[in-house]
Design a protein around this nucleic acid. Structure first.
Length: 574
DNA sequence: GCCGTTTTCGGCCCGACTGTTTTCAGTCG
């Protein structure tokens, strides 16, 4: 039972309690604990063994006992009891827009609704219309909600909506009646998936701004509209909100709509304790029962009011950033400008689409000092991987390209496949001729945790391996990560000075934010690479950086922030 | 269910919009 599973359990309990109309603060306690544990950089088992469960913020006596049972037995009588108390299908209904716990409870009681199927059937009979408080609109909204849920129940990946967001943002910024425009929400926090898009603008003409937004060609349908807020469904299938505030509230609104919810609640709680009220319009100081506005134009106003430095959006998850800020111990997060080269890319020599020269020219354009060519090896059958002879041939080609391009160093390398038994599909005497060796798993994803850990350990210990590529092999919303004991893996990586990759491909982001933070805490060095298969994909670096920032990673934790000379000293194989 | 620079009990962030209502509950973020 790992952190993520526990977080899921706690959220499930919160869902059930909602339908059962439990005390909302009790529900909130489960949600907060789920959030904190889901983002914990240590393994929950470790925390348990150290006897420090109650040190986790949001975990008290009851939840510590609950956790102990889940960790030691893998199940809990209490959980089973709660689960049995409602029909499992009801939880899904909470995900449908316009349905909350009160309505779901009513539906289940009055009409014996147990699932999405039952609900659909009920809607077609129109029996709901006869009930007090339910009109034609309520019925329509449920109908639309079900359609939306069935079509788009999974979230969008950051990279899937990146272009869309920038297009809309540009249009908003260029519109003469809009002063400022920004994107907030989980997109601004760079979460790997986003559920909706939160745009924020300032203007003297709210009605005009809202009208402009509603008429954007990207908009399919208006879902709700008021004088300061509008919600639309975009043609792409994702929902987008626009909030309009006055310029003097811009910073407060930025903070408010960036979240996370848990972070906001924590910040406002501190505000309350210090005699402030904080909302999306500003910071207000309490004075003789009256509230007087003292700031809100800039985001930093919010933090300053409660004696904190500005906290970067990526770490606003209430996972220790507020405490760190209070102790003047915020990390100095890595930034794009710190990156001096890309250590994992492919060329036409394997499954890439651009030549070594073209990739190098593009990398130089990005201001990089070096670029490692790391094509696939033979085991990865689909990619025309290179065998020993081909690698030697490629080495000569790299030498020729080096003569043709100045201003960037092309490093020779390989993304060598880690076989099922942990051996590599190129011999070490060949690998020793290369500057950079990335070793990755591409096949046999389903092995027992013990076997898989052994497999990865063997590769990490190999003296020729510099970097483990996409270590968990997950593909977001598509393939589950392999099962390994990360603590053992990371401790060995530190020991043998093998770096772990943060793969920047937006459907991978692997290591993820939580694993990256764990690696940092265990003293493992990281590399942020794109795994680009063409020139354009070199730009994916920003997603890797975003993930690293979410994992509290600093420049000093990342090898490809080093100069070429420093880097070559750190790499094992050269 | 958690938590304490007012508190070991009694609080717990705050506001916008909708739909069905004549003043507000429910939902959402």
């Amino acid at each position: 039972m790992d952190n993520i599973e526990i977080a899921k359990f706690f959220n499930e309990i919160a869902d059930i309690l909602e339908i059962k109309n439990a005390d909302r603060f009790r529900i909130g306690a489960y949600r907060r604990a789920a959030q904190v544990i889901g983002g914990l950089p240590q393994d929950i088992k470790e925390v348990y063994q150290a006897g420090k469960l109650e040190d986790i913020p949001g975990v008290g006596k009851t939840l510590a006992q609950f956790l102990t049972e889940l960790i030691t037995r893998g199940k809990s009588a209490e959980l089973e009891k709660i689960r049995k108390s409602i029909s499992p299908g009801l939880i899904k209904l909470l995900r449908i827009n316009s349905l909350g716990p009160k309505k779901v409870k009513f539906l289940s009681k009055k009409f014996k609704i147990k699932s999405l199927k039952d609900l659909k059937k009920l809607i077609t009979t129109h029996k709901l219309l006869k009930e007090k408080g339910w009109g034609i609109k309520s019925e329509q909204n449920i109908f639309e909600g079900i359609k939306l849920y069935e079509k788009f129940s999974q979230k969008y990946l950051l990279g899937e909506v990146d272009g869309l967001v920038n297009n809309i943002l540009t249009k908003l910024k260029n519109y003469s009646n809009i002063k400022q425009a920004e994107i907030c929400g989980s997109f601004r926090r760079s979460k790997e998936t986003v559920g909706d898009l939160d745009f924020l603008t300032t203007t003297d003409y709210p009605d005009k701004a809202i009208k402009f937004f509603c008429h954007l060609p990207e908009v399919k349908k208006i879902l709700s509209q008021g004088p300061t807020k509008v919600k639309v469904l975009l043609k792409r299938g994702i929902e987008a909100d626009l909030r309009v505030v006055k310029p003097e509230s811009f910073g407060a609104a930025m903070h408010y709509f960036t979240g996370s919810k848990a972070h906001n609640i924590a910040v406002r709680q501190i505000g309350v304790n210090k005699g402030f009220k904080i909302n999306e319009y500003g910071v207000y100081k309490r004075n003789k029962g009256q509230f007087k506005k003292i700031g809100g134009r800039d985001e930093v106003d919010i933090f300053r009011a409660i004696d904190l430095p500005w906290i970067p959006p990526e770490i606003r998850e209430d996972s220790g950033e507020i405490e760190a800020a209070a102790n003047n111990a915020l990390p100095s997060l890595i930034a794009q400008k710190n990156i001096r080269g890309d250590l994992h890319i492919h060329s036409t020599w394997s499954d890439g689409e651009d030549s070594i020269l073209a990739m190098a020219q593009a990398a130089r354009q990005l201001g990089y000092e070096y670029l490692a060519i790391t094509d696939h090896t033979v085991t990865v059958g689909v990619t025309h991987g290179l065998n020993a002879r081909a690698i030697l041939k490629q080495l000569k080609e790299i030498e020729r390209v080096r003569q043709r391009i100045k201003g960037i160093k092309i490093l020779s390398g390989s993304e060598v496949d880690i076989r099922k038994d942990g051996s590599l599909d190129l011999p070490n005497d060949i690998l020793s001729k290369l500057d950079v060796v990335v070793a990755s798993i591409h096949t046999s994803f389903k092995m027992s945790k013990t076997e898989m850990t052994k497999r990865l350990l063997k590769a990490i210990k190999n003296p020729q391996v510099d970097i483990i590529g996409h270590p968990s092999t997950r593909e977001i919303n598509h393939r589950e990560p392999i099962e390994v004991d990360w603590e053992i893996i990371m401790k060995e990586a530190r020991q043998s000075k093998t770096a772990l990759e943060i793969n920047s491909f937006w459907n991978r982001l692997d290591l993820n934010d939580v694993q990256a933070r764990m690696a940092k805490n265990l003293g493992v060095k990281l590399v942020i690479s794109t795994d680009a298969h063409n020139v354009a994909e070199l730009n994916n670096m920003k997603f890797g950086i975003a993930t690293a920032r979410r994992g509290w990673i600093e420049k000093k934790d990342v090898l490809n922030t080093l100069s070429l000379r420093e880097l070559t000293q750190k790499l094992k194989s050269s």
